[in-house]
Write a protein that binds this DNA or RNA. Structure first.
Lengths: 110, 110
DNA sequence: TCCATATATCATGAAGTATTGATATATGGC
DNA sequence: GCCATATATCAATACTTCATGATATATGGA
């Protein structure tokens, strides 16, 4: 994850529909969702959603796989990890003491 | 941190100069940097930088404090934490098992 | 009060981005 | 091969964002 890639990813996440898509796909987990399902679930038109899925793909935040006539999309948690690590790297590299409490509060509630 | 706030923050981070500013201020730590210093360090013009600092302020990613004639800016780690927690919340809520390895890799290298 | 320094705001033009209707491509079933 | 379904691409318009020159505001010192 270099700076250019991070910028692309942040840009992808700075649009309401796309942020919704990523959250939806994270919840969908390994099952993923077909492009059409996603569009229906979020009340977006087919071609608009296709364009937005393309942006998220480009950003490395989602993946896809054809399944019959549909194309299923999945959250790319590895891509998300890379983005967060990019921010954390800056934080920890420059100021570990101030950074640690920040990380401590980000934990799975389970 | 609601969705609207997260969108503003992601938008703020999707611009090269602003991403550089945040990284710079994170490294500067509690000392912070004056607006003019930041502009000089990143090779940006005064008013352009002022506008970009305003965007980061609006997004809750940096803070400022007047010090004499200068205004010093600081990274707002609490704001950054809120943004990351917003993403993590989605992740952990929907898929704790897949999410944990992601969190495990984000640790301070120190 | 006057001047110099430091930063913010305003108005404008240029560039990028989103959405849309229309159309194209790809897959599966008959 | 033909049709229906599913998704992607294209071209155009509207919208937003960015950087800039010019100007305004605020602070400190003489």
């Amino acid at each position: 994850m270099d700076k250019t890639h991070a910028l692309t990813a942040f840009g992808a996440l700075s649009q309401p529909t796309r942020l919704d898509v990523l959250r939806l796909l994270i919840r969908a987990g390994d099952t993923g969702m077909a492009a059409g399902e996603i569009a229906t679930a979020l009340g977006a038109r087919q071609n608009t959603m296709s364009a937005n899925l393309g942006v998220l793909m480009q950003a490395g935040l989602i993946r896809n796989a054809r399944q019959g006539r549909s194309i299923r999309y999945f959250a790319d948690l590895e891509g998300l990890r890379g983005l967060l690590a990019f921010l954390m790297e800056d934080c920890c590299g420059g100021n570990p003491a101030a950074c640690q409490p920040l990380l401590d509060t980000i934990t799975c509630p389970s």
